[in-house]
Amino acid sequence: MFSPLSVTLVSGERDAVLVDPPLTTAQTEQVGDWVEASGKRLTHIVVTHGHGDHWFGAPTLAERFGAQVVASAGTTTQMEANARLRPTFWDALFPGQIPDAPVTAVVPDGNRIDLEGHELRIVEVGHTDTDDTSVLHVPDLGLVVAGDVVYNGVHQFLREAQGDGIARWLQALDVVAGLRPRFVVAGHKDERLDDDATRTVAETRAYLRAAAELLGTTRTALEFFDAMLGRFPDRLNAGALWSGATTLLPREP
């Protein structure tokens, strides 16, 4: 139906921070029960970018746990855009399944929050699979929770890659690599794969470079789609690839 979603809980001894809550009411309830079972006090919910599948559950979870939703200024603007788009796009995909989701995110001072004395940094990286994206960097863990900046075994969403979108996405990956993480949690990942930072960043780059090459040599969406499937046959959710293909190339020669 959709690309698998990753939801990350960064926890200390008592408190925790949740990153990118999911989309539907059922998923949100499941994640809430998971957080409750951890025994941690949820202080913040971080949203890395504006796509609704990574935050529509945030207001419900914030109310349940008394947590604060935080995001960069650019991400907050994109969240508002996705809220406006919701009736014609998100609700059409998941009718009656998405909870009420007003944009309640605030921008933390310096794009930083504290978790029991450990600094968590929202790092803005610009355009990736949408505009104004960010990652959450946890230096003390060597961790980057990457949202949709990095994909892991899942076809990448290229629908917003018009113009210089792929080049800008590659630049964002350079920013992530510059943080020198050991682990990267991708927003969409095959659960059978690990979170090795070097591999996931390299594979996301390779996919983008292949897409850029094939966009210059294929004439139609189907040609591009088939060529990308030939190079990346094991990635999940070819529907995401088809969505991008039909946006970037004509269906007919």
Rank of each mutant, 00 (worst) to 15 (best):
V106P: 11
Q27P: 14
P22A: 06
D140T: 15
T60V: 12
P139Y: 14
P87A: 04
V145N: 08
H44D: 14
A186K: 10
Q27V: 08
T218W: 01
E63A: 13
T128P: 01
A202E: 09
V46A: 00
A172L: 07
P99W: 05
A186N: 05
D114G: 14
A227D: 10
L229S: 02
H188L: 09
T104E: 04
T198S: 05
F56H: 09
S134K: 00
N152E: 01
V145F: 05
R180C: 10
R159G: 13
L61N: 04
D100K: 09
V7P: 06
H188N: 15
P102M: 02
A172E: 04
D53V: 07
T75L: 01
R121Y: 13
A197R: 01
L23K: 09
G239S: 05
T25W: 05
A206Y: 04
T200Y: 03
V176S: 10
D196P: 02
A238V: 07
V31P: 07
D100E: 15
G32W: 10
V70S: 04
P95E: 05
Y207H: 09
F224W: 10
D234H: 02
G165D: 07
G165L: 05
Y207A: 05
P102Y: 02
V10H: 11
T25E: 02
S72L: 07
E80Y: 14
A37Q: 13
A146T: 06
V46M: 00
W90L: 07
E160R: 15
A211S: 08
V185I: 12
R231N: 00
A101K: 08
D190M: 01
L23P: 08
P139K: 11
M79G: 09
L248F: 09
F2Q: 13
V154Q: 01
V10Y: 15
N82E: 14
T133F: 03
E63T: 13
F65M: 05
E29T: 11
V145K: 03
E119L: 12
P59V: 13
H118N: 11
L179D: 08
D164S: 08
V154Y: 02
D148S: 11
L61E: 02
L222V: 15
R180H: 13
R86T: 14
T88P: 04
F2C: 15
A227K: 06
A62G: 06
G239R: 11
L141D: 14
Q68T: 12
L9S: 07
R192S: 12
E223F: 07
S134E: 02
M79H: 15
H127V: 10
F56A: 06
L23D: 05
G66L: 13
E29R: 12
A81E: 12
L208Q: 05
R182A: 15
G187T: 15
L5G: 06
T104K: 04
G96W: 14
V123N: 04
R251H: 07
K40S: 09
